[in-house]
């Protein structure tokens, strides 16, 4: 027991070290295009893993992730344009103050999105399957329409002048936190309850699991990280517009989760990275074809994947269990 706890802390420290090292050694996002894309991929990883908690782990179908992302993004961005650009913490230098405030802003964005998740989740998580999808979609659309109409939020033009504070370290850091959260959750009692709900809600209820309570908590956590991703995106692009939070964005995230394999964290991460890099890598194709085929390729690939490999890239498995199994498989051949 103690050894396991120790081991998991070791892993967390190792991860943090890796993130620190990576962001220290790699070129910064603004100076290198691959790193810039890596930043976008990191944000998508946060989105995909957070949606995985609801869609993959709990088996609830949410189509409103873009909405929570928008709530978090705009909250953090407002804080950025109103506070960070104007004020600075006392007794410390400006960069340090900005960093501290920025971290607070991402937390604030996450909290706002989590609160929105609670408000949406409480009444709607009684609904099942497609009905839940439609309600979450509806909420996301309402949020978008509201943003379009509110002058303070920049309306259709977008909220401009967000300080450019997101760097690769923060993206990797939050991706790691999201990943660890999802992984630890999946392996905890809580996670098993969620998996039970996914497999059979009625049976889970009969086993004494407070299904609505668990679902709402999973939903709030998922919204929190979506909000963090929105906050990171705003400080990355320095602008947030309603056009980035349409129904299509929600669909994109669902596609990442399903393509990776429903119920697999590493699958979601893999799919998020792939689906961010692929459209960027395909850009030069236009020089040869004359027309932009990226959407056609994306859609065809999605169809081919679903038809040829309906379970997704990894199915329900994780990269680490697969690796461990490999190792176990290899061992007996040496032993006798």
């Amino acid at each position: 027991m103690n050894a396991r706890v120790l081991e998991s802390w070791a892993w967390i420290l190792f991860g943090l070290l890796l993130v620190g090292l990576a962001s220290a050694l790699l070129p910064s996002a603004s100076q290198s295009y691959p790193m810039y894309v890596a930043g976008l991929a990191g944000i998508n990883v946060i989105l995909a893993v957070s949606l995985h908690v609801v869609n993959g782990l709990t088996g609830q179908f949410s189509l409103g992730h873009a909405g929570f992302m928008a709530v978090g993004g705009y909250t953090a961005a407002l804080f950025g344009t109103r506070i960070i650009s104007e004020y600075k913490l006392m007794y410390i230098s400006e960069p340090v103050s900005d960093t501290i405030l920025f971290f607070f802003a991402t937390l604030l964005g996450g909290a706002a999105a989590g609160l929105a998740g609670l408000l949406v989740g409480l009444p709607s998580l009684r609904l099942r399957g497609d009905y839940l999808a439609i309600v979450t979609l509806g909420f996301a659309e309402i949020i978008r329409v509201t943003i379009e109409n509110v002058e303070v939020l920049g309306a259709a033009t977008g909220l401009v002048g967000i300080p450019p504070l997101t760097n690769l370290f923060w993206i990797f850091f939050w991706a790691l936190v999201t990943f660890l959260f999802a992984k630890r959750l999946q392996e905890s009692t809580h996670g098993r309850a969620l998996a039970a709900i996914r497999e059979d809600e009625i049976a889970a209820e009969a086993m004494g699991i407070d299904t609505t309570g668990y679902k709402v908590r999973a939903f709030v956590a998922s919204s929190f990280f979506a909000g963090v991703a929105g906050a990171l995106l705003g400080y990355y692009l320095t602008i947030l517009t309603p056009r980035d939070f349409t129904f299509l964005k929600s669909v994109e995230v669902v596609v990442m989760v399903v393509l990776g394999g429903m119920g697999s964290i590493s699958g979601a991460i893999l799919a998020a990275i792939l689906l961010t890099i692929l459209p960027e890598a395909l850009r030069p194709l236009r020089e040869h074809t004359g027309v932009d085929l990226r959407m056609v390729i994306y859609a065809s690939l999605l169809l081919a994947m679903m038809l040829l490999r309906p379970r997704g890239i990894l199915g329900r498995q994780e990269v680490w269990t697969l690796l461990r199994r490999r190792r176990e498989e290899a061992e007996p051949e040496v032993a006798p």
């Binding site: 399957g129 596609v255 399903v258 393509l259 056609v296 994306y298 859609a299 065809s300 679903m306 309906p310």
Partner: peptide, 22 residues
């Protein structure tokens, strides 16, 4: 699973739109 069919439906929809826009 039904979610797969749903994603496929979205894929078909995106594909038809993208091809139509060429």
């Amino acid at each position: 699973p039904r979610l797969n069919a749903l994603i496929t439906a979205m894929g078909v929809s995106m594909l038809i739109q993208a091809i139509g826009q060429l």
